[in-house]
């Protein structure tokens, strides 16, 4: 494997966004790119990352290799990379370590780290192709704000999506709160758009602790997409350049 990223920033942010949700995971490398799928310890949420080969310049991977990595350790190594550094990830065929090289853009500084790999026996789940009943795209910063505000009211949020908009409702001991985003197009700045497409109304409840955790990915993308169908996990997607993505799935809270 040899994969070179123009800016370490992307990889730093991706790892930062998932490291509190999952601790040990395999980065599955093959000729289509670097993928990762992992559940959190309590098996409530799942993270699915894809960094396509096109994200790297260049990308080369001759054989399928899983790189089992402790994300806490990876975070320590990535701290040494500045956001604008060129990052190269390298690995041998049957590796004990993954090699990370950071090169300063304008300087003659080259940092090189070897990170020990671990054997991780990870369950791989089949995520069914789903035609979601409702899809809502919104500014990622707005979603983060809504989740953190409502977490102060309750540990759960009910998300209701209709043609009129998407509503987040929390009911807690101190009272209730709700936020509605209406569909709108900002002609000056499409990053501000709220776009809703719906085949049938949905209403589902989720843990805000997990949703606020997903929002650590906010810096990766201006917009976030929520995909919902009744009685299936919510998908929260941060789309990245070159068809890469960071997706989180969250199992709903259901009636007792």
């Amino acid at each position: 494997l040899e994969a070179r990223l123009e800016a370490a920033d992307l990889f730093k942010k991706v790892v930062e966004a998932i490291k509190d949700l999952v601790q040990h995971c395999n980065f599955d490398c093959n000729d289509s790119g670097i993928a990762l799928q992992a559940m959190d310890n309590s098996h409530v949420a799942l993270v699915s990352m894809m960094l396509t080969a096109d994200t790297f310049t260049p990308f080369r991977c001759d054989r399928n290799i899983p790189l089992g990595i402790d994300l806490t350790s990876l975070t320590k190594v990535l701290r040494a990379a500045q956001s604008s550094d060129i990052l190269t990830i390298k690995s041998e065929d049957a590796p004990d370590v993954v090699n990370l090289v950071f090169e300063g853009k304008d300087q003659d500084r080259i940092s090189e780290y070897d990170l020990k790999l671990m054997d991780i026996d990870q369950e791989h789940l089949g995520i069914p192709d789903t035609e979601y009943a409702a899809t809502a795209s919104m500014p990622a910063a707005d979603f983060k704000r809504i989740c953190s505000d409502l977490l102060l009211i309750s540990e759960a949020v009910s998300i209701e999506c209709t043609k009129e908009g998407i509503t987040f409702k929390a009911e807690g001991d101190i009272g209730n709160g709700s936020v509605t985003l209406r569909q709108h197009s900002d002609l000056e700045n499409s990053d501000k758009n709220v776009d809703i497409s719906l085949t049938e109304p949905v209403a589902l409840s989720f843990s805000l602790k997990y949703l606020t955790g997903f929002c650590k990915a906010t810096g990766l993308s201006n917009q976030v997409r929520l995909c919902l169908s009744n009685d299936v996990p919510l998908m929260v997607e941060y789309a990245l350049a070159n068809n890469s993505y960071l997706r989180f799935y969250l199992a709903p809270k259901i009636g007792d």
Binding site: L46, L125, P128, L250, K253, D256
Partner: peptide, 14 residues
Amino acid sequence: KTKQSGITSFFGKS
């Protein structure tokens, strides 16, 4: 009253 469901009850092991 609601309870948290698990992700594995929706996504099968492959």
